[in-house]
Amino acid sequence: MEDKKKRTWRQKTAAVLNKQWVAGYVFIFPFIIGVLVFKLAPFFTSFYLAFTDYSVLSPPKWIGLDNFRKMFLQDEKFWASLLVTFKFAFVQVPVKLAVSLLVALVLSRRSRAVGVYRTIFYIPSLMGGSVAVALLWKQLFAMDGVINVLLGWIGIPPVQWLTNPSTALYVLIGLGVWQFGSSMLIFLAAIQNVPATYYEAARIDGAGGFTCFFRITLPMITPVLFFNLVNQLIGALQAFNSSYLITSGGPLNSTLYYGLHLYNRAFKYYEMGYGCAMAWFMLVIIGIFTALVFRSSSAWVYYESEVK
């Protein structure tokens, strides 16, 4: 009796396990767990915590909208950090896009060594997220760093890059721009997808390099430009690493990113609830900017498939 029961049990399981969709779910199971535990749970928890006074060490206390009130009305560094972040994003993103597009154009030329160049130009991005690069950048721009030595050779006195409130942010922007590799690669792929026939036709009509670029290349890659713009904008608004590692927000809070201010509040002063509130406000801001970019896209992004 028991043997029979067991067999049916095993047969049943086998029948279930042999279904194709089961294998699929089993394979994505680790990922689903990851999303649930590390993304969704913190996401909703932080929404709740945004309305609490939570010191991490003792349980959260519901305080309604007090965090937001404090944020908008009392915390002057909140506005200062928002301003710094906007300045950072609105300078870095266009410059970075321009540089990566330019490099992509150069590298799209056919030549034997082009593979090597592509690799070399991509290296900064490979190392980009790492702490070591940020620290290296700090060394480069130190008072006795390489940049000042180079300037010395051409007779320019050393500049206090990182301790001067008016230059420090630009050093960090420079670091961000330098890590143009991933957007460059995406541009490169797009440029190479533009059909050669367009250029041939243009040349026959007597178009030069500039005309080709502005009339053919640029319009053809606008979807990718759009993609890069959205990506970079979101990334820049969430910036944290470079300021944390290089300047800790100083001098005079001139590099205090929103993300860093949030981190200080949450982890240094143990105001986790306030930190969560700040995070949710940033989500709203990012949402607004992304929506604006999407709205504007119909005016300047060209899709081949589109019928006008």
Binding site: S55, P165, G250, L252, N253, K268, Y269, Y270
Partner: peptide, 22 residues
């Protein structure tokens, strides 16, 4: 005070403004 660190940092910030002659 549990807010001691915050107040200390605040003094540091004002001081920085002073020594930078802002």
């Amino acid at each position: 005070s549990p807010k001691a660190a915050e107040v200390r940092d605040k003094f540091g910030e004002v001081t920085q403004k002073v020594v930078y002659r802002v």
